[in-house]
Design a protein around this nucleic acid. Structure first.
Lengths: 167, 167
DNA sequence: TAGATAACGAAACGGATCGTTCCGTTACTG
DNA sequence: CAGTAACGGAACGATCCGTTTCGTTATCTA
């Protein structure tokens, strides 16, 4: 349904109709639209492995390419956008997104950065800033539905995010 | 109303009640919720001047600090979050956001980057990538309601976005 | 095998919002 | 003073929310 009509066509009523299930059944299993969306996303997410090499910039380019391909090739891009929209009107959903969903999804990428720290390529105290840059970059393109047009920016952006801090 | 209850409490019905106006009157002036939100944001936006010095990193830190202060100190942070959420369920709203609202709001910041290009500090072909990094960084923190906690990341992030490309 | 338990679908609830239509009033305009 | 246009208010049908009720099915236990 998200693939067909996006967030606008996604409602608990519509889900229960389509599933041939009663609404109470849906609410028995997921307390929220956001709760359902997060499980849909997690269930659909192909395992995008992120094994650090010794080149952070290349690791980030590879991971971003895989992620964008996943977002474009499945309904997951739509799902993610719906989830982020939902979090803007439901504080509980925002808390779940920030404190549970995102940390889980970010484990691999964070690993790329900590590996670079271990190699001495980037300072440990900059990991959060660089992670935020990485996340935000992806969010901007997916939220504005510009994943195709934005591909050209990936290498330069990742080079900057991965840049060693001089001095 | 956005300041009081956020996006959840914002509906055309509620707006017309609060304004003592009929709904048709609201729809006569703004064709969309997004349309109204964009005008609210634009009307509220204090002029945050962004005059380039000769240090892009410092310019970006200053502008980000001003922007986050504006987002936190007025209902505008809420307004912006509502606008972005609205754009996820209304393709027309997304197009307006992407093609009209954002370019207008970004004029000043883009000026900071093009000034750096003119000085030879950064290559012209990387402006889009760096702008996306800048935008995304801000979006991530405002959309996750972490503007206070994220302030510590600003200097490092801006240093990376403004970094000269070696070689 | 018989009874208890739990999940289920279906329907309906009150409340809210959407975007639109109709109507009678107000306030400018010429 | 007549005409016009924007207005407020009320109501429309449609959709969705989250919850309650009810009768049925399926599983587990004794």
């Amino acid at each position: 349904m998200l693939a067909e009509e996006g967030y606008a066509g996604f409602s608990i009523d519509a889900v229960s109709r389509r599933a041939g299930a009663g609404k109470p059944t849906i609410y028995r299993w997921w307390k929220n639209r956001a709760d359902l969306l997060m499980e849909v996303y997690a269930a659909e997410k192909a395992i995008i492995t992120a094994v650090p090499t010794d080149d952070l910039a290349r690791d980030l380019v590879d991971h971003t390419t895989a992620l964008w391909g996943f977002w474009c090739g499945t309904p997951s891009g739509r799902t993610f956008r719906a989830l982020l929209a939902e979090a803007q009107s439901d504080p509980e959903a925002l808390a779940a997104l920030r404190d549970k969903f995102l940390p889980e999804r970010l484990r691999d990428v964070r690993g790329l950065f900590t590996a670079a720290v271990a190699r001495g390529d980037i300072p440990a105290e900059e990991v959060e800033a660089r992670l935020a840059l990485y996340l935000g970059f992806n969010w901007f393109y997916v939220l504005t539905d510009q994943l195709e047009a934005g591909q050209a920016s990936i290498p330069a952006a990742m080079r900057l995010i991965a840049a060693p801090t001089p001095r």
